[in-house]
C-alpha cells in the first residue's frame, strides 16, 4: 500500500509583511520575495507524515508565475518528491473558480492520485474556496478544516474537523480532498540533505497546451468575479483617554467612568 499525494501550494506576497518568525512566533519584516502560504506548510507536513506511515510519493502543485518555483523548491526541501508548476499568461487573473478548474485538470493529468491536500486558506486573498472547488470538480469527498488525521488502512482515514462550536469525526475513503488547519501539526524544517537533494529534483512546468482545458474556463475569461476596487481602510484612532497616576488611582478613575456608563 502506498499513497500518491498531491499538495496544492501557493506563494503569497509579503507586502503586508505577514511573516512569522518560527522561533519567537513574532511577525518579522522581510524582503520583497514571496513566501509559501503558511497553512500550506501544515498540508505538506500532513502529507509527509502519511508518506512516512504508508510510503508513496508527494507531488507539489501550484498555479502561478515562474517565480513560484521558489516556493516549490522550499516544499521539495521539506521532503516532497516532485513538483508541477502551472504557468501561462492564459492562466493569469484567475479567481477561485478558474483556479480550481485548472488545478483539478492538472490532478487528473497527474493521474492515480489518492489524496489532495490544501492549506485551510491563503493569507492574501483569504477565501478558503479552492479546496472545495477542486473537490467538486474531481467529484471526490472533501473534509475541510481538519485538525487531526488517523489512517487505518491507508485507504480509510478518520479526520477530526473543528467547527466553531463543535467537533466532527469524519470517516472517508480515498481518493479525497482535505484542507488542513494549523492545529494539525508543526511543520518540519528542511534538513541540509533534503535542501541539497531538492536542487536535483525537477520542477515540471505545464501550460494550457499540456492540459486538457476549456479555454473559456481558464484565466480572466473563466472567472465570474471581478475585483471592482481595492483600498486600504483608514483606521481612525479612537480618542483615547489616558489614565494617570498609580495603578490604584487610575483604576478609581476608571471605575467612575465604568459606573457612569453602566458597565459594572
Amino acid at each position: 500500500m502506498s499513497l500518491k499525494i498531491v499538495v496544492c501550494i501557493k506563494q503569497v506576497p509579503v507586502s503586508n509583511n505577514l511573516k512569522i518568525d518560527p522561533i519567537t512566533k513574532n511577525l518579522i519584516r522581510s524582503g520583497e520575495q514571496g513566501i509559501m502560504n503558511p497553512y500550506d506548510k501544515n498540508a505538506i507536513e500532513a502529507a509527509l507524515r502519511l508518506k512516512d506511515e504508508w510510503g508513496g510519493e508527494i507531488i507539489l502543485l501550484s498555479m502561478g508565475p515562474q517565480d513560484f518555483e521558489i516556493t516549490l523548491r522550499e516544499g521539495l526541501a521539506m521532503g516532497c518528491d516532485g513538483a508541477v508548476l502551472l504557468s501561462s499568461r492564459q492562466f493569469g487573473g484567475a479567481d477561485t473558480l478558474a483556479t480550481g478548474y485548472v488545478l483539478s485538470q492538472a490532478i487528473k493529468k497527474i493521474g492515480n492520485v489518492d489524496l489532495v491536500l490544501f492549506g485551510r486558506q491563503s493569507v492574501d486573498a483569504d477565501t478558503s474556496q479552492v479546496g472545495p472547488i477542486v473537490s467538486e470538480f474531481l467529484n471526490w469527498p472533501q473534509v475541510t478544516f481538519v485538525s487531526e488525521l488517523h489512517s487505518h488502512s491507508g485507504k480509510t482515514i478518520t479526520a477530526t474537523r473543528l467547527l466553531e462550536n463543535m467537533q466532527q469525526k469524519i470517516e472517508f475513503q480515498l481518493p479525497a480532498v482535505i484542507t488542513v488547519r494549523r492545529e494539525m501539526n508543526e511543520p518540519r524544517y528542511p534538513t541540509p540533505r533534503n535542501i541539497q537533494q531538492s536542487y536535483k529534483k525537477d520542477i515540471q512546468v505545464w501550460d494550457e497546451n499540456n492540459l486538457s482545458v476549456d479555454p473559456d474556463r481558464i484565466g480572466v475569461k473563466g472567472s465570474p468575479t471581478i475585483v471592482r476596487s481595492v483600498w486600504a481602510p483608514e483606521k481612525e484612532a479612537k480618542s483615547t483617554k489616558y489614565l494617570n497616576g498609580s495603578a490604584d488611582e487610575a483604576i478609581r478613575e476608571l471605575l467612575i467612568e465604568l459606573n457612569a456608563n453602566n458597565l459594572l
Binding site: 473558480l97 477565501t127 474556496q129 472545495p132
Partner: peptide, 23 residues
Amino acid sequence: ATVVGRSIAPRLQAKLGTGLTSD
C-alpha cells in the same frame, strides 16, 4: 463565513459555475 459555510458554498459555486466572494 463559518467552517460549514466556507465548505458548502464553494462546492455549490463549482456546481453552478458562478462567482463566490468570501468573508
